[in-house]
Design a protein around this nucleic acid. Structure first.
Lengths: 177, 177
DNA sequence: ATGTAGTTTCAGGAAATACTGAAAATACAA
DNA sequence: TTGTATTTTCAGTATTTCCTGAAACTACAT
């Protein structure tokens, strides 16, 4: 292996490391735990599936941590486990196509967070629907405004996430201009 | 004050409380601290500006906590402080129009989180642009795909957040059907 | 049955984050 | 000035969240 190649490999490893680290930090700003974001970052930038042990070693994390976060990623639908025939060990690979990733994340966050939020709003709106004081009316109106907005956002997101990339992209590009 | 009125007031307070509590929980799933989300929820559903002391009492939090989170909300542009003439105390009121709220949040998250993310990607792409191994090429390609997607999303969001509600809503409604 | 490779669980500990409360600073009035 | 109301800061503490590591479990091979 030439010196040149070794240097290049090092540079690639460094870049991937930087990406993994930073992606973890970014994830936590969006309420996603650091390790989960890091594992995801690692998997989407590694061409072959990785085993739990490889991930543990690369990120210097414990088995329990790697295991749990991998299961969560599988639960989100962002990662799938693959088994090589003749081997017992489980390997993991991420969906790499960015558009699909986006759709999956949108769908899941919708299910996990937007829908519960809508329930809260619905409940608050119903509980105050009959009240007659000015303050109660204002409250009810404000809650309904939030409800309407969320419902619309939800619908738009759903449509986008269900559509094919090929139908949304041209529209998005047109929109941008 | 009639018994009827008192009951209604209690019901309103309960509903607001429920909203404030749940909104705090929802906020933390999106990486926003619970108290900040609660103060925001309180302010957007209260018709008049509130003082730090009123907020402290309502949410049962310390002065330091209330103060810091109020400053953060002002920093986000979601809340502004108002001074009643002849009074020293500072009062706070939230932007209540949901569309404006959305635009503000979109603008700020873009500035605080999407832009840093784009820098990371740009850096990783540049560092690996010249490498020739297949793995490096694949890495570079994947990073660029993320970059393109984020850039597009960023632009679309910016456009939407800059546009008037009156221009976006009809489009959104049309899109939904 | 027994051994082995691999996975899962979870009690306890560590780290990150958020909060309190009191003291210091500030701003204004008399 | 001096006093008073209000805001700001921040060291220490509490809480939440996350992680470790080892033991229990599972599945399969011999």
């Amino acid at each position: 292996m030439s010196k040149q190649t070794t240097q290049e490999q090092t540079e690639l490893l460094r870049a991937r490391d930087e990406f993994v680290t930073q992606w973890g930090a970014i994830g936590s700003a969006w309420g996603i735990n650091r390790t989960m974001a890091q594992i995801h970052a690692l998997l989407i930038t590694t061409p072959r599936p990785l085993s739990t042990d490889e991930i543990m070693e690369d990120l210097k994390i414990s088995r329990g941590n790697a295991h749990g976060n991998l299961r969560d990623l599988v639960g989100w639908g962002l990662v799938r486990s693959v088994v090589r025939k003749g081997e017992r060990k489980e390997y993991f690979e991420a969906e790499k196509e960015v558009w699909k990733m986006f759709c999956t994340i949108a769908r899941e966050r919708k299910r996990r967070e937007i829908e519960p939020a809508m329930h809260v709003l619905k409940d608050c709106a119903e509980r105050t629907a009959g009240l007659r004081s000015d303050e109660a009316k204002a409250f009810n109106k404000q809650i309904k405004a939030l409800q309407d907005f969320l419902a619309l956002a939800d619908t738009v997101l759903t449509k986008i996430a269900r559509a094919e990339k090929s139908t949304v992209m041209p529209w998005a590009l047109k929109f941008v201009k």
